[in-house]
């Protein structure tokens, strides 16, 4: 059983559409469509670890600004993004908060922290 998946490289304005042939047990057996070796590395990483830094906001209390912008310290699996955002919807933070301060630690047991990206 082989399967072809397509990944668009974001390395440069070319935006190469890279095709990966995935064999049994998810092994990458072939790859084409990339124009450079950075593209190859990107496609492999994107296939093996499709994760993103999540940026969002959390609600504040006792503060004139209703929201504090936040981000995860490490990329979160794409499939877990919606779960993470729901967890953020449940918390409230009060000033003072320093940029870089942990707002939520070990987010959903992932080992990823959520930190403030601004002072409050």
């Amino acid at each position: 059983m082989q399967e072809n998946i397509k990944i668009i490289c974001i390395g440069c304005p070319l935006g190469c559409e890279i095709t990966l042939t995935i064999g049994q047990k998810g092994k990458v057996e072939d790859m084409w469509g990339n124009s450079c070796k950075e593209g190859k590395a990107y496609a492999l990483e994107e296939y093996q670890n499709p994760a993103r830094i999540l940026t969002s906001t959390v609600r504040t209390k006792n503060c004139s600004r209703p929201l504090l912008p936040v981000k995860t310290t490490k990329p979160v699996l794409k499939t877990e993004l919606m779960q993470c955002i729901s967890a953020l919807a449940r918390i409230r933070v009060s000033p003072p908060i320093k940029i870089g301060e942990v707002v939520l630690d070990n987010f959903l047991e992932t080992g990823v922290d959520v930190i403030a990206t601004d002072n409050l």
Binding site: I8, C9, I10, C12, P13, G15, R52, K78
Partner: peptide, 12 residues
């Protein structure tokens, strides 16, 4: 816009 936004905002 930029390719990275096309992939990470629309395709994702």
């Amino acid at each position: 816009g930029l390719i990275r936004n096309e992939v990470q905002c629309l395709h994702d």
